[in-house]
Design a protein around this nucleic acid. Structure first.
Lengths: 132, 132
DNA sequence: CATTATGTCGTACGTTTGTAAGCAAAGTTT
DNA sequence: AAACTTTGCTTACAAACGTACGACATAATG
């Protein structure tokens, strides 16, 4: 597979919004960005264009505007991005990051329940797995 | 606080190694980097110099070499980096990232136990907290 | 002691990134 | 229809990045 060059920070932000919508135009993304971000329409346009050039998004013309949609499975892209991040900042170990995320506040009781469930499932998978 | 400019990817990688050692010289970091990374000694030198300029590391001369050590609490830097990452790729929500990390393999039964413990603690904190 | 290795300092340099302006074409408004 | 508005395409441009070279100094070694 031809390795597409990594997403930049700003590109991640924009790509995420496209993924969340399934597809989107420059305007939609521009409006979706937090007001505090205060970035120009043209700038968003550039990010989307670059995402297309890099191979992350597909651009289809619809009338005078362009509709962007994922060209690579978002999950795959996220996976790569997370992996890169974990590698650089945590030496490749996911656990420290998870601990960090759980440690610092930000988890509601509901979240905690949800995670408990995930842990149980993971455990089950372990006990029942073909052990690779 | 004077906002130091964000860490670049390569800088994160290098800073992490310094943190892991408490302090380190260019050579030590260069050797610590995975062989596959294959980056020049001079390059590492540049990264460390930049980390110092950006205010993340303190540089103290020791003989002919320089010993770098954290100037900002690693935990704080990691926190900022994670926060930025979560914001851009997960819209600021930690849960999806945690789920992602737990979902994809990589968790040993021991890890799971450890996480269970963390969850309990978080829960306790919740029940007992002054609720802000 | 001449040679080689090792280190810092300053400098370089192509690429990527963040941010957008300029111009033109198509659509909308008055 | 004249005047805006919206959008795409091209181009710009400084700062940040990744990667490293060259000069110079000092320490180690034959």
């Amino acid at each position: 597979m031809a390795k597409r060059s990594a997403l930049s920070k700003a590109e991640m932000e924009v790509a995420r919004l496209v993924w969340a919508r399934g597809e989107a135009t420059v305007r939609q993304i521009h409006e979706a960005l937090p007001a505090a971000r205060d970035v120009d329409y043209k700038t968003v346009q550039t990010f989307l264009r670059r995402l297309e050039t890099k191979g992350y998004l597909r651009a289809v013309r619809d009338g005078r505007s362009i509709v962007y949609s994922p060209r690579v499975r978002p999950g795959k892209v996220i996976h790569e991005a997370v992996k890169d991040f974990v590698t650089r900042l945590f030496g490749g170990e996911a656990l420290p990051l998870v601990e960090h995320l759980l440690g610092e506040r930000g988890l509601s009781p509901a979240d905690i329940q949800k995670l408990r469930k995930i842990l149980s499932d993971a455990e089950e998978r372990h006990n029942a797995s073909p052990g690779k």
